[in-house]
Structures are given as structure tokens and as C-alpha cells.
Design a protein around this nucleic acid. Structure first.
Length: 593
RNA sequence: GCGCGGAUGGUCUAGUGGUAGGACCUGAGCCUUCCAAGCUCAUGGCCCGGGUUCAAAUCCCGGUCCGCGCACCA
């Protein structure tokens, strides 16, 4: 269907965006929240049409990335306690340090001021008091007006919304800045549910919150938004993606090498070739790019305005081996709609470190392995009196030494170094032994592949790419050529004109189609042309009109009008529910009627 | 957070120091046998708070929100 998609948008892209935002307000797609109270920045309400469209897009995502891939979906809370974000790094990493100039009042990123004027390279990782000290020590000045910044307070601005769990402030919590943590945190239980078998995937569709300094461009960058994320857990040594399913998928790639090149350009290739040529480093990332591309096409993203862009080394997190964004073109700008990252074991290791639970999977060997292992079992009745409070540290040193260098225990005595001081102790008191142990497997930390979709940006793209203008019978027309699968209203039902008999018949048909599970709107106001245009503007794919032939002829029939072509066909009423359902799923094309 | 520009019915807009018009939309009616037609009538507005002034939607200050640039984009 997309190859016929019209991109004959008149005038400039920018005015398309303006017209779309205006249409969205007027027709109930989306609009600014709390308008009655002056509005609030970065929050949008999806109106009746927008909520339905968004819901349909989410359903389509669920069908593809959860159901069709055999993954499980969860629904975690949006508020989680502070330790979760200490582990995830959001508490520190999400901080911006701001320092305000006492003269001109401008705020600057304190870490940037430091990095630009000293030899410090990673000022963001310094504690705030230290940044203040550095500013004083180097007598750094305001980049705008050269006034001295020494002595000015450096303020932390965290992009997470903070709250308190329960009364008082002893139990801080945060609104999640991404849905992913809700999955990672529950990994210990989810792995049980997956019967400890890798690979498995967990999806979540939900809200995330970021207290953006500067929300922009309507629903493109908001403070509350919806993500659809998949965390796919794999055994890095054994699991491989079923690339054969997607190897022929054609994609437009914009690799880092091309972005860095003088005359770099996008590359058209297939998933299979991109993996073979090493353009996409991670086969897992490649697989999900291959799944995502046809899906984006199906929900209505214009493939001529779509690409996958590789992250440059500078914008990639240090733990991410390879990362690609799905981007769509809006107003001549490319906006990020999804990120596909190979995150290694970073997230699970962090939670393993910070929590009491195990974020590993027990991986059984093909054959149990017998290994020799050097162990110690120190005589604490000797070590205790000898070393006092350091006894535990001595035990730890002995354990380390045994596993590292068992030859050290060959003599009568063994030497350990404790806080720079050397100690000798009799080997017989260490309980040193080499034991044979049988191991059935090992605990491994799975790696995770993360396709992370921004639902709001996708909805915006779908609307923007669907926005079309043409002429019908000499009259200008605006319509959204939304795919029937995601269109908020699927069919409009009208009486041809004011007439009790026609209206009654049309209402009956509308009720029958609703009973079929279709999204139906009934309209009998104004003339028929006006009603068609109304539905065109919200993107309703089909309209059914009851005329005098319907109520007078022997075989009762109605006209069905298609939105994009405005063509009409006559159909028997009895066939309507079945035919329209088939049109919705794409089993049937309008031309075939 | 800074800078620049903006804010008038649901939407788009005109406007002057003397409390507001238009178009579209919407509703009622007439007309109408398939594409925003016509006619009649109707609903509905100066972002918020201060200040100047006899008088402020208009001028000034502050705030909120929107757009753009800077910065930021986990």
C-alpha cells in the first residue's frame, strides 16, 4: 500500500507541520494539557482520535514485538524507589550541573565550564563540591560576560521527577525516566518465569517521565511520554538471531563512517548484506532492525522518509557495542523514533551489584566438569588472636592467593601482604587444600539487546506522513491517508440526506458494524460532501452511504466510498460486516470489490 | 535556564489608548437523490497578574504558554 502513498504535500514541510498541529487540535488528535489553567509545558493530551490512533499503534507493536516474537509483556509501576536509580546510574548520570553567573544571570553547565578551561576531561563525574572548588581554584569566569564564578553555588538539576513514597521524606522515589528499568529490576523473577532458558524477551509499553529543561516541537519532546520497549536477553556465547528471516529486508542505512565523511551519504542495502559487510556490527541489532523496518512501513511511516542511523562513537554509551536509531524525516529534519542498542551485560550487572538478588542465569554444561580448585579453610582460633580485627581481611587475602597462585602454599609458611605490611604464617593454619569439584554449569550474566520505541514520536510521524492535500471536483481537499489498521475511525455511516427512513436504516447499519468490532461514526449533519470531507480530514478510510436505492430495491445495498480515491462501489448490506473487516486487515483491497 | 519573536471565539485571523470585526467550523431550520454549494437564524473571543491613564485587548513590568536559536536530548 505504501508504494501508492502520496507525498504530494503542497508547499513546504514546515507549513505541513503547522497545518498538522492545527488539525490535531481541531479534530481531537492531540493538544496541550491543562489549557484552562494556562497550559503546562511539555504535557499533551491525546484527544478522542489521537488516543484511538495511539492505541492502535500500540496494539500493532504488541502484535509484532511481543506476540509474533514469542516475548512476554509486563506492566511495571512508573514510580520506583531511589536505590533502583542509584543502580541504573540515572541518579548521577541524569544530573546536569548548573552555575549561575552573579553578573549577567546566565546559567551555564558547570561541568562544561570546567572542561573547557582546565585539564579536567570528565567533570561531570566529579562531586559538586569539588566542581565548586575547581571553579574557585582556577578562577573560572562566566563564558558570557567574563565575571568571576568563584564562590557561586553549583546546583544539581536532575532530569528525573522526584517524589516521596509514603508520608515524610525518608523514602524518596522517582518517576521512571525510561520503562526499561521496570524490566531489568524484575529480571530475577522473570527469568524463573522463562524457566531459566535463554534467550527470552520482555516487553513493556508505558509512560516515562523526564523533567526536560526545554520541551520542544509539540509532542516530539515532552515531559511525559510513552515508550514501547523490548529487552531481549541472550547468551552472548551461544545465542544467534534468526537472521534468515530478515536478511532480504531492504533498508536505508546511515552508518557512522558516512556521517563522518565529507560527502557521506545514506546506503541502500539489505540486512543480510549489511551484516556480511560489517556495516551493522551486532547481528542482534541487525535482526531487530530487520523486524522493525517492515513494521514501520505497515503502520504508515513513509519509507522514503525513513532511515536507520548509526550512533557516532561520541554519542554512544561506553558499554554499548553498537547502536542504531530509527529516524523519520519531519520538516526536513530527522527525528529519532527508536533506538536499537546492544547493551552487553551492563544493566543486569549493575543491579546484581547494587541489589541482594541474583541477575544471572545458571547455564548447564553439556557434560559436568570436574575441576581442581585450591581452597583455604583457615584456623580462626589461630588467626583471631594473631591478627585481631584484621583476621577477616587475612582470610580474604588467603582466598585470593589460593586461587591466583597455589604454589605460594608449597613451603612451610605463606606470605601475605596486608596494607603494605608483609606477614608470614604457617601453611598448616590456612587449611590449604586442592580439591576436586564437579560443576554442572556456571552462572552467566545475559547480554541484552534493547529496541526502544518512542510511541508519541511515531504517532506524530504517522500523522505527518499521512497528511495529504489534493483536489476533488475542483475543490481542495485535506485528508490523512492513514493505514486502515491504525486509523482511529474505520468507517463513517451516513444517510444520503435528511429523511427519516434513510436515517433509521443508516443507524441500524452503524449499530451492526459496531457489533462487528469496527470503529464506526454516524453523521447526518449538513450535506453528504461535507460529511465525506470531515472523515477525510480525520483519516477515516471508508464511508458507507444509505440512499433511496437501499430502501427501495429488492436487494438492499449501500455505497462504499474509499477515502484516498473517493471512488464508490455498491455492496449488498448483508456483505458489509465481512467485507469491511477484510478491508481493515488488508485481506481485501478496495479495487477488488 | 538565557536570547529573539509571538499569544484576539473551536480554528485561522483584522484591529485602533475610548471595552472588538471577518472567514471557516459548530448548532437549529429551509433546500438537496453522493463529494466542504446556497439561504435564514444562533452560540462563542482580547493568556494571567500588576502598573501608567479619566479610560488598556492596545503602552510598561512580571508571569504562563507557544515557536526559533543557544544549551540539553539519559
Amino acid at each position: 500500500m505504501s508504494e501508492q502513498r502520496q507525498t504530494d504535500v503542497a508547499e513546504t514541510d514546515e507549513s505541513t507541520s503547522e497545518k498538522l498541529v492545527e488539525l490535531a487540535k481541531r479534530r481531537g488528535y492531540f493538544f496541550q494539557s491543562s489549557g484552562a489553567y494556562g497550559g503546562v509545558g511539555g504535557f499533551y493530551t491525546f484527544g478522542p482520535q489521537g488516543a484511538a490512533l495511539k492505541g492502535n499503534v500500540e496494539d500493532a507493536w504488541r502484535d509484532r514485538f511481543a506476540v509474533a516474537e514469542g516475548n512476554m509483556e509486563i506492566d511495571a509501576p512508573t514510580i520506583m524507589p531511589e536505590p533502583v536509580f542509584e543502580a541504573s546510574g540515572h541518579l548521577d548520570g541524569f544530573d546536569d550541573m548548573l552555575v549561575e553567573c552573579p553578573e549577567c544571570g546566565e546559567s551555564h553547565r558547570a561541568d562544561h565550564v570546567v572542561e573547557d578551561n582546565t585539564e579536567y576531561e570528565d567533570a561531570e563525574s566529579l562531586p559538586i563540591p569539588e566542581v565548586e572548588d575547581v571553579i574557585a581554584e582556577y578562577e573560572l569566569v562566566c563564558p558570557s560576560c567574563d565575571a568571576g564564578l568563584a564562590g557561586q553555588a553549583v546546583e544539581a538539576f536532575n532530569l528525573m521527577f522526584a517524589t516521596n513514597i509514603g508520608p515524610g521524606d525518608s523514602d524518596p522515589g522517582y518517576l521512571r525516566p525510561e520503562t526499561a528499568q521496570g524490566i531489568f529490576v524484575e529480571f530475577p523473577r522473570l527469568k524463573e518465569y522463562a524457566r531459566n532458558q535463554l534467550p527470552f524477551g520482555v516487553t513493556q509499553i508505558g509512560r516515562a517521565y523526564r523533567n526536560e529543561i526545554s520541551p520542544r516541537r509539540s509532542i516530539i519532546r515532552t515531559r511525559e511520554f510513552t515508550q514501547a520497549e523490548l529487552e531481549y536477553f541472550v547468551d552472548p556465547e551461544e545465542d544467534e538471531p534468526p537472521l534468515e528471516r530478515v536478511e532480504d529486508v531492504e533498508v536505508t542505512l546511515y552508518p557512522a563512517s558516512e556521517q563522518n565523511a565529507e560527502d557521506g551519504d545514506e546506503v541502500r542495502t539489505t540486512i543480510g548484506d549489511a551484516v556480511d559487510d560489517g556495516v551493522i556490527g551486532s547481528p542482534w541489532v541487525a535482526y531487530f532492525l530487520g523486524v522493525a523496518k517492515p513494521w514501520y512501513d505497515a503502520v504508515g511511516v513513509d519509507m522514503d522518509r525513513f532511515r536507520f542511523r548509526q550512533h557516532l562513537s561520541g554519542e554512544r554509551a561506553h558499554y554499548a557495542a553498537d547502536c542504531w536509531d530509527a529516524e523519520s524525516e519531519i520538516d526536513g529534519n530527522w527525528i529519532e523514533m527508536a533506538g536499537f542498542a546492544y547493551r552487553s551485560d551492563y544493566d543486569l550487572s549493575k543491579h546484581e551489584e547494587h541489589s541482594d538478588d541474583r541477575f544471572t542465569i545458571f547455564k548447564q554444561y553439556d557434560e559436568p566438569q570436574t575441576v581442581e580448585r585450591a581452597v583455604v579453610d583457615p584456623d580462626m582460633s589461630y588467626l583471631g588472636p594473631e591478627f585481631g580485627g584484621d583476621a577477616q581481611a587475612v582470610v580474604q587475602k588467603l582466598e585470593e592467593l589460593a586461587s591466583r597462585d597455589r604454589a605460594a602454599f608449597d613451603g612451610e609458611t605463606v606470605e601475605i601482604v596486608l596494607e603494605g605490611e608483609s606477614h608470614e604464617l604457617p601453611v598448616e593454619k590456612t587449611g590449604f587444600a586442592v580439591e576436586e569439584q564437579t560443576e554442572a554449569g556456571e552462572h552467566i550474566t545475559p547480554h541484552v539487546v534493547e529496541p526502544s520505541f518512542g510511541v508519541d514520536r511515531l504517532v506524530y510521524t504517522v500523522l505527518h506522513h499521512a497528511y495529504s492535500e489534493d483536489e476533488v471536483a475542483g475543490e481542495e481537499r485535506t485528508y490523512l491517508d492513514l493505514d486502515p489498521e491504525v486509523a482511529p475511525t474505520f468507517v463513517g455511516v451516513f444517510p444520503l440526506q435528511s429523511d427519516d427512513e434513510l436515517e433509521a436504516e443508516a443507524r441500524d447499519i452503524a449499530a451492526a458494524l459496531r457489533a462487528e468490532g469496527l470503529a464506526v461514526t454516524y453523521d447526518d449533519s449538513g450535506n453528504i460532501g461535507r460529511r465525506y470531507r470531515r472523515q477525510d480530514e480525520v483519516g477515516t478510510p471508508f464511508c458507507v452511504t444509505v440512499d433511496y436505492e437501499t430502501v427501495e430495491a429488492d436487494e438492499r445495498s449501500v455505497t462504499v466510498r474509499e477515502r484516498d480515491s473517493t471512488d464508490q462501489k455498491r455492496l449488498p448490506i448483508d456483505d458489509l460486516p465481512e467485507t469491511l473487516s477484510a478491508l481493515r486487515t488488508g485481506e481485501l483491497e478496495f479495487e477488488e470489490l
